[in-house]
């Protein structure tokens, strides 16, 4: 446990280890900063498991979850994370219909700011929206997904899952397969995993592959069988229903034929590989139930568990300056 792929963050004193005010993306984070967040999260994994005395470090702090896009899992995860730290958690469901595009986005940010939130968690359907709000408020902002740009806590929880299961991230062959073009999860994961020195392979039909992806230090494949050859981790992405009907791929069954993770494919090409999925899954499309529910190899429920720990760590770290934690004030 705690086997870092990079120099131990503990050598850097206090707030200097994580000098960022917000967490808007993995981009801009140094490898040792990522490792630091993972180490912090690791402590919460154990605490969550034992359920010892409830932590109250965020008591009296208001956490606003401003979700401009529908979400169940991520919202719940952030809510639980905040409550386990003693924060007053308020959820703002800004339905897509009521907040028309960005017209009121700055105004919403101003409003949240005026309400003296201590930390704001934002999900928005437009790339860059979170950074726009972060520039306008006085408290730390956490990106819970913006458009196709980034979803940093997802990448952190995935890295933590890999690290705990495989003992480290460096030099592990990780294959990310699915709709990379529209995926913020893929972008953040590529940035985090390459920063932690993993060998990252991406796989998708060309219609779902982001342009110039090789510039991110990954190897691109269109043939799934070749891509997962010898993989340590196979991370499947969700294929949105509206993209299955012919716009990007001809049909779900053709997609399953070429890119579906079946038990046979897994055993043939990457026996023993860790299977991951950010959820929600389309069983029978990108992943078969036999794989998703595989007792030894599937880490999908563990990812959800790591999600809470990672979000607790992020909420804790980002509020340390406001809480005047020693070395951070």
């Amino acid at each position: 446990m705690n086997q870092s792929d990079h120099r131990p963050a503990t050598l850097i004193p206090g707030g200097a280890v994580f000098p960022h005010r917000h967490l808007t993306g993995i981009e801009g984070l140094e490898p040792h900063e990522i490792t630091f967040l993972l180490d912090e999260a690791e402590t919460w994994v154990e605490a969550n498991r034992t359920r010892a005395a409830p932590d109250q470090r965020l008591a009296g702090f208001t956490q606003i979850n401003a979700f401009f896009e529908n979400s169940t899992r991520t919202l719940l995860s952030f809510e639980i994370a905040g409550k386990r730290l003693g924060a007053d958690v308020v959820n703002m469901h800004a339905a897509q219909s009521s907040v028309k595009k960005g017209e009121t986005l700055i105004d919403t940010a101003m409003t949240l700011n005026a309400m003296r939130a201590d930390v704001i968690v934002i999900r928005h359907m437009s790339s860059g929206a979170v950074r726009l709000i972060a520039d306008k408020v006085d408290c730390p902002v956490l990106n819970a997904g913006d458009g196709r740009h980034e979803h940093p806590t997802q990448a952190l929880l995935d890295a933590l899952t890999i690290r705990r299961r495989l003992g480290g991230v460096a030099n592990k062959r990780v294959v990310i397969c699915g709709d990379l073009l529209h995926s913020r999860v893929a972008r953040s994961n590529i940035l985090a995993l390459t920063a932690l020195a993993a060998e990252v392979r991406v796989c998708a039909p060309s219609t779902l592959m982001p342009p110039a992806i090789e510039r991110f230090g990954v190897t691109a494949f269109t043939d799934f069988d070749k891509a997962i050859e010898g993989a340590d981790v196979v991370m499947m992405l969700r294929l949105q229903t509206e993209r299955m009907a012919g716009g990007y791929v001809p049909s779900t069954r053709e997609y399953h034929l070429r890119y579906g993770l079946t038990l046979e494919r897994l055993n043939d090409r990457a026996p023993g590989a860790l299977v991951m999925h950010p959820g929600p899954m389309n069983r029978g499309v990108e992943i078969d139930s036999a794989v998703a529910d595989h007792v030894e190899q599937s880490a999908i429920t563990e990812q959800v568990q790591m999600g809470v720990a990672v979000r607790m760590a992020c909420l804790d770290v980002l509020t340390r300056r406001a809480r005047k934690v020693e070395g951070w004030a």
């Binding site: 981009e27 860059g128 972008r187 342009p211 992806i213 991110f216």
Partner: peptide, 15 residues
């Protein structure tokens, strides 16, 4: 325009 910047920012792009 399609390219590294557009991909990095997650912006819809065209060749």
């Amino acid at each position: 325009t399609e390219g590294e910047t557009a991909t990095r920012l997650g912006l819809p792009s065209a060749p």
